[in-house]
Amino acid sequence: MSAGTVSPGNSSTPGKVHRRLGDRAFSGLATAAGVTILVVLAGVAAFLVSEAWPAITAPVADLPDGKNLVHYIWPLVFGTLLSSTIAIIIAVPMAIAVALFTSHIAPKPIAMSVSYLVDLLAAIPSIIYGIWGIAVLGPASVPATQWLADHFGFIPLFDGPASTTGRTMLVAGIVLALMILPIISAVAREVFQQTPKGLQESALALGATRWEMIRMVVMPFGRSAVVAGSMLGLGRALGETMAVTIILSVSGVISFDLISSENPSTIAANIALQFPESSGIDVNVLVTTGLVLFAITLAVNMAARTIISRREAAGGR
């Protein structure tokens, strides 16, 4: 039952006009606040477009390096997708395991406090992830990437030569994975806990082990939510700026090589690096790349939300 269905007894006596005035003013105010959200979002899109417009309409010769806008943006889109893909590949299985641990494996009191620790991961500012990545994880990754380059160099991903500083796409992807892990696992944990008790107990009563019960009851029940949660995480990874900015040493190449010191930049990192030094048309070009990022994340997030709301409409909760 939603609260919206309750309404006050409206025995409108003529002398109580001021009351109804108050009611109308207050509901107007609340509605205005709600509409503000739509206005702000429309404003974000409108102002970005208006600042990007000069770059979109400018002749190619005026653009940075005299390059076509598409040629400027494409390597950045590539880098953005590559780093986010690595992050998703690492984060999703881990997030599912973490969610299962808190929902089905750990004893109740432990589960409560550890889920709190996972939430803490989400609260740590991205800049701190960035400097941790470059100071600790990067150097720690060097022997591993060197080994990968030596033994699996025939795979394009590990083509090498391995970076000696650890400022690689792989490290950036791992750090991104850590940052989106809590988002995905929070969504997954929620639905795993909502799996109907009756179904779980029936599976156990039929002789299933706990893992078989998880695989045959809990996972199918939570699948669409895990997909949606992963897409929310993907949206975050696509737009994440500082960790990538500070870790990668970028050189604008398009390369699948994850462990070398030459890496493609991402849209967000490129804006953060170039913006403070830019002026004139360069700023407009950067805003255009931001607009592209906005469009990509918008599409991903809307898809995720559609999956979640369809699930809720189907009585998923």
């Binding site: 979002l41 974000v44 975050r236 700026t241 931001g290 997030n301 809307m302």
Partner: peptide, 10 residues
């Protein structure tokens, strides 16, 4: 929900 996903740099 969509606004929740706006990248901070945007």
């Amino acid at each position: 929900d969509v606004m929740m996903g706006i990248p901070s740099i945007v």
